[in-house]
């Protein structure tokens, strides 16, 4: 596998919603490349027709009974919010100017 480029790292940072600075991008390009090269051994071991395991337990669709119960009161739900207005979470602009 080819080395991880700095552009690729910048793209990953955008996908990860991390506003990384130039130094961090440089450092991560080198480190991610080191780590990925080291762990790439999984590809040699995982040859052939082996089913994947995503989870240790064979559980699927665990349901609880559908009973109504009280939720968090607004003041508790909003207690940790960075910004609150009229009993709601106040957030920065979500849509772009042109939308």
């Amino acid at each position: 596998m080819s080395a991880i480029t700095r552009d690729e790292v910048a793209h990953l940072a955008r996908l990860s919603r991390l506003a990384l600075n130039e130094d961090e991008l440089d450092q991560l390009a080198a480190q991610l490349d080191d780590i990925i090269s080291a762990v790439a051994k999984v590809q040699e071991v995982a040859k052939g027709d082996i089913p994947p395991t995503s989870h240790a337990l064979p559980l699927t669709n665990v349901y609880r009974t559908d009973e109504s119960r009280p939720g968090l009161p607004p003041e508790q739900a909003l207690a940790g919010a960075p910004s609150v207005e009229d009993q709601r979470f106040r957030v920065p602009r979500i849509l772009g100017e042109e939308e």
Partner: peptide
């Protein structure tokens, strides 16, 4: 990420089976 999923996450899950 697409293009690497099978090579990395997918293979790692197979190793988990082994």
């Amino acid at each position: 990420s697409s293009g690497y999923y099978d090579a990395y996450y997918g293979s790692a899950q197979q190793v988990r089976t082994l």
